[in-house]
Amino acid sequence: MAGSALKRLMAEYKQLTLNPPEGIVAGPSNEENFFEWEALIVGPEGTCFEGGVFPAKITFPPDYPLSPPKMKFTSDMFHPNIYPDGQVCISILHAPGDDPMGYESSAERWSPVQSVEKILLSVVSMLAEPNDESGANVDASKMWRDDRQQFNKMARRLVRKSLGL
C-alpha cells in the first residue's frame, strides 16, 4: 500500500463529501493523484469578499499529515495574508520551525490535528478578518489599515471578477 498519507487524504475527502462545511467545496483534482486538491471558497457574508467564489489549489507533501500542505489561490486575490502569487500565508500552514514572518507562536502552527476542513475554515475566517500584522502582501496590508474604502472597492472588483462579471 502506498503510505498512510494517501489513506488519510482519502479519509478526509470522504469526510468532506459526506458533511461539507458551508461555503466550501474541496476534492482531489483527479482521482489518480490525491496529493493535488482543488477547492472553491465562497467569500464570507458580511465582508467585502461577500458573494465571491474563489478557486484554490492545495498541494500535499508526501508525508502529510506530518508536514503541512500548501494552499494557493488560482484567481487574483488582493488580501494582506495572501502573497501576490496567490500563496496563502496563515500560521497553521507553517510547520513549527520555519517562521517566514517571525511572529507566530508554535501553538498556532501545523500539527496533524489540523485537516483540510480546518485549513479551509481558517482561510474563510482569514478572508473575513485579515491579519495586517503579517503582511504577505504589503500593499494590501497598508491599504487595509489606512484606506479601508479603497480596499473594499478592490475586493468587490475581485468578487465580480471571480463570478465572471
Binding site: 498512510s4 508525508d63 506530518l66 508536514s67 513549527p96 508554535s106 501553538a107 500539527s111 496533524p112 490535528v113
Partner: peptide, 17 residues
C-alpha cells in the same frame, strides 16, 4: 506508529503541543 513518525519531526504532543 503514527506517534513514532511524528516524533521524527516534532517532539511534542500533536494535540496539545
Amino acid at each position: 506508529n503514527c506517534l513514532r513518525s511524528w516524533f521524527q519531526r516534532q517532539q511534542s504532543c500533536p494535540t496539545c503541543r
